[in-house]
Amino acid sequence: MSKPIQGFFGYARIEPGELSMITFTEVNKWFKELHVLKDINLHVNQGEVVVVCGPSGSGKSTLIRTINKLEPINSGTLIVDGMDLSDKKADINRLRAEIGMVFQQFNLYPHLSVLKNITLAPIKIRKLSKKDAESDAMALLERVGLTEKRGAYPTQLSGGQQQRVAIARALAMKPRIMLFDEPTSALDPEMIGEVLYVMKDLAQSGMTMMVVTHEMGFASEVSDRVIFMDEGEILEEAHPKDFFKNPKHERAQQFLKEVLSPMH
């Protein structure tokens, strides 16, 4: 492990280590008759950035939503940050506080200002004082370049700004894992860059991240590993260089062709 350097988000920079954060073992999930996750085996270490891609309906969103139990699994074991999610007695709220999640539709609270959006959970769950929570929130807003929007309401912001606030909101809980569920898919093209920029800096600060995305540029530049899913299965798991240069699975080749040059 290299010497820790202060990262962009104030976290000590950690090289991907051996400390295991997320482990799927033979995980299955059904929606009624539909088998959405098939025998998933996956291991993510602390500090790793894993991109999950695949055609729509492949189960990639479901996969990352099982990590904070927004979707419960039906069989297999899933261990996140040392907690077994198949254990009925597991304190799921405690775990969720350690996992930040960023959604495709931002899901900011429209009745609260930007600042209140960010400070709600830290005040209620981390029991921070309003003053401390607000100074933390301001620091995060500075990182995502939105300090002047502290008093604005979500609907007064552009999509890109909303998503950056959503990232700041997730980071306010000082999570150990960040999940991104297609964070740029609902954005206008000119706003994708500002969100990816924030995510890239977060990745470089050593945050453990799982990112469902079609942004292949982000995957190749930032991720440590790319996972390709189709029809509920993990078909390929590779270093981004290998994945983009030389995808092994036929469906991955097809997918890359369509994503990288849609018109061919």
Partner: peptide, 25 residues
């Protein structure tokens, strides 16, 4: 549904999601 999911995923308890996020809206 995303409002509830955002609240739950930040570690709020279901009753807190109801009181601070869903009911006010």
């Amino acid at each position: 549904r995303g409002q509830t999911e955002a609240g739950l995923s930040s570690g709020l308890y279901p009753w807190q999601v109801m009181v601070y996020i869903v009911l006010p809206q």
